[in-house]
Design a protein around this nucleic acid. Structure first.
Lengths: 151, 151
DNA sequence: TCCAATCCCTACGGGAATGCTAGGGTTTCC
DNA sequence: GGAAACCCTAGCATTCCCGTAGGGATTGGA
């Protein structure tokens, strides 16, 4: 029951882009260094984000990325869906075809409700919200965790 | 962001045990057949459940499993924690040691809030609740999904 | 005009986790 | 004694994760 590094790194990169408020495109190298991530790996996450319109890219020297929409119009859920696929604790909730006995399943109801809760929260948090949080905690802009997961 | 088959199968098995309300121990073979699961695989999930006291086992012929507590005192969260470990979308939320910069991390707050929501819901659903749901939908007792995940 | 910075695309590969299967115990009732 | 059950440990095929690598295309500036 874990968010992979794809999702976490993508959120970190998008957040980094949001706090800068730069009208000029920001090169990926800066974002990667600032957040302590592999530039090459991050590059792969930007491709789907660009295709989804969450970021805009400018090629060539002095190029880089800018947010595709206002920070208030980009939610964590948006980002996760792009780089990790549908937000769902089990397959059958997202795709009924994946389930043999899609009706008449009690446990299905659990995962469905869990999914709803997760989606509700993740779609309610925008990059603007994160920027506001960061503003009240100045230290919260830089390098982040990159470790595994326990809880 | 998925619950593995360990978690799903364990919940299915525990539910199966709860709806029977049998004072006699139920052999695993029956549960496996009823829920359409591999008996051998399910066997491995019962071991930790037994050690955690969620089920009691009776060895030998006419043996099997019974619930270790009343259905109303066993939550889905209890079961998942036993077979899958701590409920958490990322490691650093469960174990601060797993995170280099545990403070000063905006994204960490996201996963922490997500974890809280998940735990809150999963701990609020008991086997008794599932039995009640099943009672109003008679078809909801048998074979369940075993497929992947999309959403 | 060249060059460096940058984004872009594809492939590959090591390591860990998942989802079982298998073999061989031990206990208990009939 | 034997069958039915639980119990314990290993192993293993597949998949996924988490990057690394190589090369190409585009653009601005010296």
């Amino acid at each position: 029951m874990r968010v992979t590094t794809r999702g976490r790194y993508a959120v970190m990169a998008m957040f980094d882009l949001a706090v800068r408020r730069s009208p000029e495109p920001v090169p990926l190298k800066q974002i990667a260094e600032h957040q302590g991530l592999s530039e090459r790996y991050l590059e792969q996450l930007m491709a789907p984000l660009r295709r989804a319109g969450l970021v805009r890219s400018v090629r060539g020297a002095q190029g880089g990325y800018t947010l595709g929409r206002l920070p208030g119009a980009i939610s964590v859920g948006d980002i996760l869906r792009v780089v990790e696929g549908p937000i769902s604790p089990v397959a059958c909730v997202a795709n009924p075809l994946a389930c043999a006995r899609t009706d008449g399943c009690v446990t299905r109801g659990i995962w469905s409700r869990l999914r709803d809760r997760m989606v509700e929260l993740l779609d309610s948090i925008t990059l603007a919200d994160l920027c506001q949080e960061a503003a009240s905690e100045p230290s919260m802009v830089g390098v982040d965790d990159r470790a595994g997961s326990l809880s």
